[in-house]
C-alpha cells in the first residue's frame, strides 16, 4: 500500500486531482451540516450577485446557489458512483463469462454488447429516462445501461489473454472449478484495468447525469448541478453565475476524477510508464 502511494505520488497532476476530489467529497459529506434544509428553499431576493450577503448569490427564485451546489455535489457523486458500480459489476460479469468460455457464449454476449454500443449513448439514456419517468433510480439505470459495454469489452480482452496463461492452465489441471478459477485466479489479475476504467466511468456518469438534468430529465425533487445550469440558462446574460458556478463545479469534479484515474493507471500499470 505504501509502495503504491509512492508510485501514485510520482504523478503530480494525479495528486492534485486527488486533493480536488477530496474537497468535493468533503463538500458533499459535510454540506448538510451547514445546509440541513432543502436546497429548493427560497431564502432571499432573487438575482443577488455572488460575494454579497450570500457567498455565491441567489437564483431567479431567490434560492441560495451555494446550498444548491452542496446538495448537487451529493447527487452527482451518488449517481456517478452507484451507476458506475452497477455498470462495472454487470460489465465484469458479461465480459468475464464471454472471455473465459469463448465460443458461442462469447458470440452471444458480445453481439448483445454490440447491440448496446450501436446506439449513441446519450440519446439512449434520454430515451430510457423518458420511458422510465425521471427519478434518481431511472437516471442511475439509464447511465448504467449505456456505460457497461465498455467495461465488458475490456474485461473480455483481459480474460481472454489470461485464460491462456500457464497458471490458469495449471489450475484447470488441478481440477479447480470454473467459478474458483474465474474469481480466485483470473479476476485479481485484471483488477488494475477495471479500477482505472471504473474511475473514468464515474466522470462520464457525472457528465451524463448533468446532461440529463440540464434537459429537465433529472429527478425533479433532487437538486443537481445539471438542473442548476438548465434553470439558469434563460438568464445567462443577466445572471451569468447561475450557469458558471455549477458548470465550474462539474468541470473541476470531472477533471479531478480523470486525473486520479490517470494516476491510478500510471501506478497500477508501471510498465506503460517506463517509456
Amino acid at each position: 500500500m505504501i509502495a503504491f502511494w509512492h508510485l501514485f505520488r510520482r504523478n503530480r497532476a494525479a495528486v492534485f486531482g486527488l486533493a480536488l476530489l477530496g474537497l468535493v467529497l468533503l463538500l458533499a459529506a459535510a454540506g448538510p451540516l451547514f445546509y440541513p434544509e432543502s436546497a429548493f428553499k427560497l431564502v432571499d431576493k432573487p438575482f443577488q450577485a455572488p460575494f454579497g450577503h450570500w457567498l455565491l448569490g441567489t437564483d431567479m427564485l431567490g434560492r441560495d446557489v451555494l446550498a444548491g451546489l452542496v446538495h448537487g455535489a451529493r447527487t452527482s457523486l451518488l449517481i456517478g458512483l452507484v451507476a458506475t458500480f452497477v455498470a462495472a459489476t454487470f460489465g465484469v460479469v458479461m465480459g468475464g463469462l464471454a472471455g473465459y468460455y469463448g465460443g458461442w457464449i462469447d458470440d452471444l454476449l458480445m453481439r448483445t454488447t454490440e447491440l448496446f454500443q450501436t446506439i449513441p449513448s446519450f440519446i439512449f439514456a434520454i430515451v430510457l429516462v423518458a420511458v422510465l419517468s425521471p427519478s434518481i433510480e431511472s437516471v442511475v439505470i439509464a447511465i448504467a445501461v449505456v456505460s457497461w459495454p465498455a467495461m465488458a469489452r475490456l474485461v473480455r480482452g483481459e480474460f481472454m489473454a489470461l485464460r491462456g496463461r500457464e497458471f490458469v492452465q495449471a489450475s484447470v489441471a488441478q481440477g479447480m472449478s470454473d467459478a474458483k478459477i474465474i474469481l480466485v485466479q483470473i479476476l485479481p489479475n485484471c483488477l488494475s484495468p477495471i479500477i482505472v476504467t471504473g474511475s473514468l466511468m464515474v466522470a462520464t456518469a457525472i457528465l451524463i447525469e448533468s446532461g440529463l438534468s440540464f434537459l429537465g430529465l433529472g429527478d425533479p425533487n433532487v437538486m443537481s448541478w445539471g438542473f442548476m445550469i438548465g434553470a439558469g440558462r434563460g438568464v445567462l446574460r443577466s445572471a451569468w453565475w447561475l450557469c458558471a458556478i455549477p458548470g465550474l463545479a462539474i468541470l473541476l469534479t470531472v477533471l479531478a476524477i480523470n486525473l486520479v484515474g490517470e494516476g491510478l493507471n500510471d501506478a497500477l500499470n508501471p510498465r506503460l510508464r517506463e517509456r
Partner: peptide, 20 residues
Amino acid sequence: WRQRIQMVFQDPFASLNPRR
C-alpha cells in the same frame, strides 16, 4: 484423474499467478 497426472510448465514467469 486430475490428481494422478500433473504438469510442469515451460515459462517460469507465466506459470504462477502473480497476485497470489
